[in-house]
Design a protein around this nucleic acid. Structure first.
Lengths: 334, 334
DNA sequence: CTGGACTGAGATAACGTTATCCCGAAGGTA
DNA sequence: TACCTTCGGGATAACGTTATCTCAGTCCAG
């Protein structure tokens, strides 16, 4: 008795049913050209042997795998876009298999190359880092890739991104409309593309509105100490900010953590919606991304790219929406 | 010119280098039995053609894919166990590819069967629902599977689960030690195995401690209305609870949302740690699962199962830990 | 010198599918 | 009856790897 029993193959089924290999294949693929009686015999043999087709062989022969890869920063983090991607792909009859890049350039490369070697039909990537040169030969060899959330720097690749500039503008204008004159921005490390784009947009708003710019913008890595000092700096001095715009959901959490009970005294508009937004009093006003649209568009672009590798590259910008919940409507207290 | 250029294969490399196919394979696999000069020529050809091995063919030939599947409830939810699984697998040189089951039995089956047809070496599953009969033929055919978080009901399958009973006991004892006599439990739908196990453990604690049991236990689906009435019921009446144990992280959030400012008046111990736990005042005392141990053990079990399909099934229980943060140390207020 | 052990590299057969051909039987018409 | 078409179904060749042989050489002992 062998330890791991060899799985039955089409040959086994064919022998069991007393037909040719090709006929089994026909039955499995619902080919109409096989007689009813034979088809029944084949199906019986399949059931008897508990035959399961081997997709590896199928994919090898077909050339196509019906599988999309998703290389995201952290699988185990909240990622509504990934959920939308899965759903859209499922609706299109494609399977999405995901892996984490853990914000590590080396790991990202490893993951993407693994997916390429496995000949996934296409890849959805949340790109990290600056150097994506390793993608060049893969793209040349026919890899279909769509970047999400950020573009692939230096490469002409399809991507779908939120309208960060409009989001920041909306947040800023909203606070100004509620009487705020001194608005601070606390954001993530500007080496991250999205963070940089948002910070830059904020600087432009602040400059256009008049008043100090650099003194109101605090960006850098998400570390407890940095956030604490950023909050302190924003709210201190002779002309403290009366409102804060935060650069993403994690920053919002950290800022709220620092503010504690003081969060009622300063107006806040956060970028990115999150579960916590409705946990606090007042609830958090946010600039929400349209996750469903982003995920759906990503799958659309990827399918189009797979269907026609020569089609022109498209970079889609998805609108964002201001969700008023109270924290952004507080009046200035000085 | 063809639209999608055929990727170069080993045959192409062999022709380019003027060697036999087998020699290319040897070079790719770092076989020492190939002369330095030839190896160099082959490597040059590989670089010139931008050759990338096709894992599909490799896996088909080898019989093994070096790939583990993870079928989890929601990819895009916080899931520290999944992260630990990925890391442990990576350390073992295996790739983890994950997909969501979305708490849908039909989808779970679809995902697992897809992974089986792709001949993944093994699968980590967060089982949902009651009927996992579809797994039987797969297991018989040699599928290696490890269940995480909950067992596969009715099937004798490896699994690794947190010590829910000990966790509830610890939480209960902790509150009693801080002077609480009337402790309520608000938990998830008991059709979910984990929820049922925790609720049952709580009932046992309450019964052992004396006093009402059923009146203190509120379980059901996570819906705003239900949580609201559960909280109200727990804190109302002639003998209101002075402390609450919550059944999981989502319940904790919802309960805290309902309590609002009142959260300072009732002691709370939550099951599952989460990011929000340190957002509020006082911070949330929780029974934390050892995610790293769970994920690591799951991979260990899976690898052992793959190596020896005949080994006895093991069901591992991982200890939990009480993390004191303030909310569980509040004195009773009546 | 010659025979055997060793060594590097080439033919070739798998792995489990699908697709291309081809053939034999049935049916219809001249 | 002979011929042409139709159609179900069987050989067999891919798909791109790896593994098992086999076989020329080279080197050294007898």
């Amino acid at each position: 008795m062998t330890r791991r029993p060899r799985r039955p193959t089409m040959v086994d089924v064919a022998r069991e049913a007393g037909v040719a290999l090709r006929t089994v294949s026909r039955v499995v693929n619902d080919d109409a050209t096989v007689g009813a009686e034979l088809a029944e015999r084949v199906r019986a043999a399949i059931a008897a042997l508990d035959y399961r087709p081997d997709e590896r062989a199928r994919h090898l022969r077909l050339g196509v795998t019906g599988t999309l890869g998703a290389a995201v920063r952290q699988l185990s983090h909240v990622n509504p876009v990934l959920r939308a991607v899965e759903r859209a792909a499922r609706a299109a009859g494609l399977m999405v298999l995901a892996a984490s890049t853990e914000d590590d350039e080396v790991l990202e490369r490893h993951v993407v190359e693994s997916m390429c070697r496995r000949r996934f039909d296409g890849i959805i990537l949340e790109p990290i880092g600056e150097d994506h040169g390793y993608l060049l030969p893969e793209l040349a060899a026919g890899l279909s890739l769509v970047a999400v959330d950020r573009p692939v720097l230096g490469l002409d690749v399809d991507c779908v991104i939120s309208d960060n500039v409009a989001g920041i503008r909306t947040a800023f204008a909203h606070l100004v409309a509620h009487g705020h004159d001194r608005v601070a921005y606390i954001g993530d490390d500007e080496r991250i593309y999205t963070a940089h784009e948002r910070a830059t947009a904020f600087r432009a708003c602040a400059a256009a509105h008049g008043g100090p710019v650099d003194a109101m913008v605090h960006t850098g890595r998400i570390e407890p100490g940095r956030i604490t000092s950023a909050v302190r700096a924003a709210l201190a001095g002779p002309a403290p900010a009366t409102a804060i715009v935060t650069g993403n959901a994690s920053i919002s959490v950290e800022v709220l953590r620092r503010l504690g009970a003081d969060s009622r005294k300063v107006a806040i508009v956060g970028f990115d919606d999150s579960e916590l937004a409705t946990l606090l009093r007042p609830d958090l006003t946010v600039v929400a991304q349209d996750d469903t649209a982003i995920g759906g568009t990503a799958i659309d672009l990827l399918r189009a790219r797979i269907a026609d590798p020569a089609r022109p590259v498209s970079r889609v910008t998805v609108p964002v929406e201001l969700v008023r919940r109270g924290s952004g409507e507080l009046p200035p207290i000085s």
